[in-house]
Design a protein around this nucleic acid. Structure first.
Ligand SMILES: [Mn+2]
Ligand SMILES: [Mn+2]
Ligand SMILES: [Mn+2]
Ligand SMILES: [Mn+2]
Lengths: 223, 223
DNA sequence: AATACAATTTAGATTAGACTAAATTTATCG
DNA sequence: CGATAAATTTAGTCTAATCTAAATTGTATT
């Protein structure tokens, strides 16, 4: 039962998982961009993953891929490692939320299951990583997320920030400056239908955020 | 100044360092055994390391290799990572001294310099790993070791265990059972010139140890 | 329906690191 | 000293993962 999937394959599966979360297939080009690998190479690898025994992806020429059950388990394994590591690095080595991603990106492939268990236990089995993203359970199930993109809110509505997805380090630092961290209570002050800008208040701070940002912030909105 | 040496190369350099500590050259066969790689492959890699710009090893056909200055720095970098990681895993995740080696073996190649600095600072810049082995300094100098192999001691002599080198997990657990951990005060009770067995007392425990073991334990003996 | 552009796939080459089998060099020992 | 054995190197193969260039397929637009 030793996984022995290469680091490269683990990365493909993780990115396929993320690209297919909404139910769509992961296209060759999208994977190429995420993985920084040329499309021709992606096609090649994807065919290998589909031909593997057991198959890790479902692949139809020109239609992109989805994960099989085995592929999904392998992806969640990597994602669990990644998110536990992020939480662990923040908690024990004082990393900030904009620094952890890169480090976890490399460590996620080499820690043992024992390491994973020890981290989880030492932190009391946390549910979310420093960005507020859900951590798959030890038996590799992704908990249900019940959150709304901030971009869907309108003036007067109140909500709590739950997570920030796919943000680069610079944006994370910016959000921290604006008091927009997971857990923060916010109120929508204004909305512009022209550019979809939202004016958001968090504590004493008021910010005007474009769709680029509001689409990456997810909130707990009781509606 | 990004190192970018492959994991494989890092492992070669680390093992060459260990095999040449006594001043000898590291032979193809010795490296083959340590690395679990066939001798032909070792020759191949060693020639590549010698041809690298800058050269990482000095190589003469049929004579084995030694490290160049650059090779030694790279080796010490890996060894510093390894030993800091071992100390860190023991301290923060409750690993025991017989469990840490394997984990550190994989992590040593992927942590950042930032991770290294944070670990060192968090532990107050420790001098030794859980096996008592010296940790190279941040500027990659190996501190001088002033220790004697336990095998050199004779009855009535007293000493303090400083480190245990190259022991497998099973032996480490055995030594722990016998109270023979780094820091332990010991007295030599008996010596057999036939088999070189030493009878050693640590606290209330008395053990008879063969050369296989006494050659791997190093002590602080004021003589 | 025809065409043009974008996305994808095929084909062939490259790199790193390993392996086996065979050749060669060095060491040992009667 | 010369014959063996051991250690090492050479030569040729293999696998994983990538790349470039060229061919193909799908789609959007007129
Ligand atoms: Mn993350
Ligand atoms: Mn795991
Ligand atoms: Mn060690
Ligand atoms: Mn380092």
């Amino acid at each position: 039962m030793e996984s022995s999937l290469t680091i490269s394959i683990q990365d493909y599966l993780k990115h396929i998982y993320e690209l297919t979360e909404g139910g769509q297939n992961a296209s060759t080009n999208a994977l190429s961009e995420r993985l920084n690998v040329k499309p021709a190479s992606v096609t090649n690898m994807v065919q290998k993953l589909a031909a593997a025994q057991p198959a890790l992806v479902e692949y139809q020429k020109h239609q992109g891929v989805t994960l099989t059950k085995e592929g999904r388990k392998a992806a969640l394994e990597v994602i669990r490692h990644h998110r536990l590591l992020e939480a662990w690095l923040v908690k024990t080595l004082g990393y900030s939320w904009d620094e952890v991603h890169e480090e976890a990106e490399r460590l996620e492939h080499v820690i043992s299951e024992d390491f994973e268990r020890r981290m989880a236990a030492a932190m009391g089995h946390p549910l979310r990583d420093p960005h507020g993203e859900l951590i798959p359970t030890a038996d590799l199930v992704m908990p249900l997320e019940d959150s709304t993109p901030l971009s869907a809110l309108r003036p007067k509505q109140k909500a709590k920030i739950q997570c920030v997805k796919n943000a680069d380090a610079e944006l994370l630092r910016h959000l921290e400056d604006l008091g927009l961290l997971p857990g923060a209570q916010i109120v929508i002050v204004d909305y512009s239908s022209f550019d979809h800008n939202l004016t958001v208040k968090s504590g004493a701070k008021v910010s005007v955020l474009g769709l680029n940002i509001t689409g990456k912030i997810f909130v707990d909105y009781p509606g």
